[in-house]
């Protein structure tokens, strides 16, 4: 049994069996990562391009390590500004790379829809590493892996995503993935950070963080981008922290069984205090390790399909 699609563009529409397969495969690779020699020959001879049109050290390194541990040949194309702005169209950039005979493209871009667009102009397997505020499926998969690792299951769990939902690519992917796996999903944040009609996805919207802590098994806490619109969407970072920040006091008062995830990088003292970020409730560094294993699983399953 393999995956139902030859691309991973998002978690929307990915069936539970596929998610299960990726997570189970990741478990095998997670064991490989504990060996002294962390490399398998599975993707030998495959060429993978990491096409990053937006800054992302962590995701790119995680993908690159995953590729190297599967023995694939990898090339990085990183540019902080789109090549469009330099005169070459995105399509030409991709066609040039395609002409070098690549098997898979990992893409990160500030515009939603770019991975879909890539499937129309390239024959390679496409993996979305984050498109605008749309999706970031491997992040959702590694989050699910980490939750399952800590709590043994996903089905029936109550998971809340906390923070700037409107500007997040992690939120949507988590919502789709977790719901497919039978979890109950909600979001929490200031009303200005909740995108329009999101409850139509079959999720609850909260604005009270104490209640959220009390009523959930897992919080996936998003980064508050300090540079983004402070003063317009929220009055200040100080006020955000006061009313939405996750603190050890809150956890101890309302629910000390909660599991805290964070996709990184953390703003200590904003969405989380250091006590929480380094404390017993969090699985933040496990997420990073699991990220490599999950990406190995996705690369392996897609790379050996055709």
């Amino acid at each position: 049994m393999g995956l139902t699609s030859r691309h991973l563009l998002g978690m929307q529409g990915v069936p539970a069996e596929d998610i299960q397969l990726i997570l189970d495969t990741a478990k095998t690779f997670r064991e490989v990562l504990e060996r002294p020699i962390k490399k398998v020959p599975t993707l030998q001879g495959k060429t993978i391009v990491n096409l990053f049109f937006e800054n992302s050290t962590r995701t790119r390194i995680s993908f690159e390590l995953a590729q190297k541990r599967l023995s694939a040949d990898t090339v990085n194309f990183s540019t902080s500004t789109s090549s469009t702005k330099k005169g070459e169209t995105f399509k030409d950039t991709v066609r040039n790379i395609e002409a070098m005979k690549v098997d898979m493209i990992i893409v990160r871009h500030e515009s939603a829809g770019v991975p879909t667009f890539l499937t129309k102009i390239s024959k390679a397997n496409i993996i979305n590493a984050g498109d605008g505020r749309h999706e970031h499926p491997t992040q959702a998969l590694l989050d699910m892996y980490s939750i399952r690792e800590r709590l043994g299951k996903l089905e029936g769990l109550k998971v809340c995503i906390v923070g700037d939902i409107a500007h997040s690519r992690v939120a949507l992917s988590n919502i789709y993935g977790l719901k497919a796996m039978g979890a109950e999903v909600s979001v929490c944040g200031p009303a200005t950070m909740i995108p329009r009609d999101i409850q139509k996805l079959g999720i609850r919207v909260y604005h009270d963080i104490d209640r959220v802590i009390a009523e959930h098994n897992v919080l996936n806490v998003l980064r508050i981008q300090l540079e983004r619109k402070a003063g317009t969407s929220i009055p200040s970072v100080r006020e955000y922290h006061k009313y939405f920040g996750i603190t050890a006091e809150r956890i101890e008062k309302y629910n000390n069984n909660i599991v805290i995830l964070h996709p990184g990088p953390i703003n200590r003292g904003v969405e989380l205090t250091s006590e929480v970020a380094d404390g017993p409730y969090q699985v933040i560094l496990d997420q990073v390790t699991n990220g490599v294993a999950v990406r190995m699983a996705v690369l392996y399953l897609l790379g050996t399909m055709n």
């Binding site: 939603a112 829809g113 498109d131 605008g132 749309h134 999706e135």
Partner: peptide, 13 residues
């Protein structure tokens, strides 16, 4: 357009 669709697509509305 800002709507449930723009929320699903992650496009600014």
């Amino acid at each position: 357009n800002e709507s449930f669709t723009s929320t699903q697509l992650g496009l600014p509305g």
